[in-house]
Amino acid sequence: MDNLVLDIRGQICPACLLISLKELNNNRSRIKNGEASLVVLTDHRDATRTIPNAVTAMGYSVNVEKREGYYEITIKKEK
C-alpha cells in the first residue's frame, strides 16, 4: 500500500483541513480501494481534531500519532 505524504507543517486552520480534503478528494478511489493511504504531517494541534472528524464522517478510518514536534495523521480505507 502506498503512503501519500502531505506535509502541511506551518499551515493553520482552516487551511489544514481544506488542503487535506483536497488531497483526499484527488486520491479518493485509490484510498477507498485500499491501495493507498494519506499521511498528513501537521504541527497545528486543531487539525488533529478537525481532520479526523471530517474524514470519519466520510467513511475513512483515521489514526493520529504524535511525533517529535508535529503530528502524523494517517487516513485509510474504513475497516
Binding site: C13, P14, A15, L17, L18, K22, T50
Partner: peptide, 24 residues
C-alpha cells in the same frame, strides 16, 4: 465542517477562487 473561518489575510480573492474551497 467544524473548523475556523478564513482570516482576512488568508487567501486573497484570486487564490480563494483558484483554491476552490466550496468545490472541495
Amino acid at each position: 465542517m467544524g473548523t475556523k473561518p478564513l482570516r482576512e489575510e488568508e487567501l486573497d480573492e484570486r487564490t480563494i477562487v483558484e483554491f476552490d474551497p466550496i468545490g472541495i
